[in-house]
Design a protein around this nucleic acid. Structure first.
Length: 280
DNA sequence: AACCCAGTCAACCGCCTTCGC
DNA sequence: CGCGAAGGCGGTTGACTGGGT
């Protein structure tokens, strides 16, 4: 058995947060900053467990959070990142400023996985399924005509749990300059956008130009080494893998290799395997 | 109008990793 | 090195909503 739940203490509030609780939490964090979640509720006068406070802050109360209105670009990015990273929602969220892992996870489960499935793509493997699904009779709804079953009753046979290598966690003092690049190329009349590690490339659709932006990473208090993110600058020597010039060079080489693949090969399988190699 | 039921999403749970001693 | 505490993550739950019957 695992550790006893942290919220097992009697007398603690559970369930939806009240505006008053939100106010208490926000004011306390504005005054004292994030962290020390275990002691925070007591100090802030909240009858909540620390985990609950952290979750509420991270997923709802943080001032930089965007809520709802996930754009088509974000859709595309989430799908592509998921194909690279799998269910590592926090990593995916880290590439979408203002989005939380919980929101992306919910959005994936309620929208994107079903959409992919209905398009004949296995949402787990991102590969075309051999047997396109025959639309099953569904109660008509005006919105979200996509799923026939609740998540609790998956239509797919349960797949074995795959334990991907965990990324190395790095602490808050990281300043990242190189993370993901979004590489655009026009192919067959449609723009193909791929997201790969390193500098972020933002394409401005309105004027057809793009610009490079360094990773602001303002939502992340950590970064990754082997999770296709690369930490490259640090101010402290604190659980971080030093980034040497060699590392940067090899990243450049990998990036060049990726660009070459983009130019010379449109085979998604090859691109996918390249991307997977970055995760190792 | 009342009920049913699928979709949504905030919150919880359990486990794992990291940290500090 | 071992242990416990704390933080963080992904999976799951369940209350709520709103369209269909």
């Amino acid at each position: 058995m695992g550790r006893a739940p942290c919220c097992s203490k009697v007398g603690l509030h559970r369930g939806p947060w009240t505006p008053g609780e939100d106010t208490l939490l926000v004011k306390y964090i504005q005054a004292h900053g994030e962290g020390h979640w275990r002691s925070l509720p007591k100090n802030a006068g909240l009858l909540r467990c620390g985990k609950s406070c952290r979750l509420r802050w991270m997923n709802y109360l943080r001032p930089d959070i965007k809520r709802g209105n996930i754009t088509a670009d974000e859709d595309d990015l989430i799908i592509r990142l998921h194909s690279l990273l799998g269910n590592r929602w926090s990593l995916i969220a880290g590439r979408l400023p203002g989005r939380t892992d919980n929101e992306i996870k919910n959005y994936w489960n309620t929208h994107l996985s079903k959409r992919l499935f209905s398009q004949g793509t296995d949402p787990n493997t991102h590969k075309k399924r051999p047997d396109p699904v025959v639309a099953q009779p569904v109660r008509k709804r005006k919105k979200n005509i996509c799923s026939t079953s609740k998540p609790k009753q998956p239509a797919e046979p349960e797949k074995p749990k795959i334990h991907l290598p965990k990324p190395i966690r790095v602490t808050a003092s990281v300043q990242c300059t190189n993370t993901f690049s979004t590489v655009s190329s026009t192919q067959g009349g449609g723009e193909v956008v791929l997201h790969v590690p390193w500098t972020e490339y933002v394409n401005d659709d309105k004027n057809g130009t793009g610009f490079l932006s360094s990773c602001n990473n303002n939502n992340n208090d950590r970064d990754l080494i082997n999770g296709s993110d690369f930490e490259c600058q640090s101010h402290h020597h604190h659980h971080q893998v030093p980034c040497t010039e060699d590392d940067t060079n090899s990243l450049d080489k990998l990036y060049e290799e990726y660009l070459q693949l983009l130019k010379t090969n449109e085979d998604q399988v090859q691109l996918d395997s390249f991307a997977e190699s970055l995760l190792i």
